[in-house]
């Protein structure tokens, strides 16, 4: 056998394994840990949830817990009872599990990004390694974009846009990890909304600094001052459109993946769906978000 297996071979092996699993274990779920009654480490269970429940559990876990009167809801957070209690105190019964998941994912992601950055910085050399090369390529690409749109003398914005791109990109790609309890942070509306608000706030701050307060306020009263409320609505709609685009795409991809995989009993199809929605659409949406906030900024500060 040659050293490098071709993609076709890998896919074929994958297909056969999936078919075998599907044939023997259709309608069952695999569990790890220790079962309460028998003490087994790995076991199969008949699946009892309907698709409706599965969707509820995935996108509204708190509603699921309330509807089914679950005794120990902290088990769904894959965390401790103490932490769950803290979250219930902070956010109430209605969104504790969702917030728990979100905060944990954000923490993991931030730690991961910081570690990767520290690792690359420590290992950086004139002869770049593969991982350094990848990140340098992305940085160079965004640097070119910033210079092209904002000009050579505003190069310092690259760091901001690079961070935004990297954060959104990596958070979209977390869906590839097949670990229960892990979901994309961008699937929660709060994250895209916060990012969008941050970008537009930066645009307005830079505009205010460049034009001065009088001209800035005058900008809202165009063409006549009666239109000022509608201009303000237009500015708010920028935040809405930039963040709901990201949210809708990621959330939509997640729901479609869930429903179609549930219909096909998780055989083969999730791979293709993940490749399209997570890897392809996730990258494009991260790029679109960066590009749009960059262009909004250039509209205000480049003359």
């Amino acid at each position: 056998m040659s050293k490098k297996m071709s993609l076709k071979t890998i896919l074929l092996i994958f297909f056969v394994v999936e078919l075998i699993i599907a044939f023997f274990f259709l309608g069952k779920t695999l569990h790890f840990g220790s079962q309460k009654d028998t003490g087994k480490k790995i076991w199969f269970e008949e699946k009892t949830e309907t698709m409706n429940q599965e969707i509820d559990f995935d996108i509204q876990p708190d509603l699921y817990v309330k509807k089914n009167n679950v005794d120990e809801p902290w088990e769904f957070t894959y965390g401790s009872k103490w932490l769950y209690g803290k979250f219930v105190k902070m956010f109430g019964d209605g969104s504790a599990i969702l917030n728990f998941r979100l905060w944990r994912m954000l923490l993991y992601l931030d730690i991961f990004i910081i570690l990767v950055a520290a690792f690359i910085r420590a290992k950086s050399s004139k002869l770049p390694s593969k991982i350094q090369l990848i990140f340098e390529m992305i940085y160079g690409f965004i640097d070119d974009l910033v210079i092209e749109t904002l000009g050579e003398n505003r190069k310092h914005f690259t760091q901001f846009f690079f961070t935004i791109f990297l954060f959104i990109w990596l958070s979209n790609w977390t869906a590839l990890l097949p670990i229960p309890g892990i979901s994309e942070p961008t699937r929660n509306l709060n994250v895209p909304l916060g990012l969008g608000f941050m970008s537009i706030a930066l645009v307005h701050f830079m505009s205010l600094r460049k034009r001065g307060i009088v001209d800035y306020v005058k900008g809202f009263c165009e063409p006549i001052f009666i239109m000022a409320p509608l201009n303000i609505v237009g500015e708010v709609s920028k935040v809405i459109s930039i963040s709901f685009r990201l949210f809708g795409n990621i959330f939509g991809g997640a729901i479609i993946t869930l429903v179609v995989s549930s219909l096909t009993h998780y055989v083969i199809v999730p791979v293709g769906l993940n490749m399209f929605f997570t890897m392809f659409a996730g990258t494009i949406q991260a790029f679109v978000f960066t590009m749009l906030s960059l262009t909004y900024l250039s509209m205000e500060i480049v003359d």
């Binding site: 969707i55 685009r245 809708g248 795409n249 959330f251 939509g252 991809g253 729901i255 479609i256 429903v259 659409a281």
Partner: peptide, 11 residues
């Protein structure tokens, strides 16, 4: 992505 949004609302 427009059609995806519509599909999500349908689901």
């Amino acid at each position: 992505s427009g059609a995806i949004f519509a599909l999500v609302i349908s689901m």
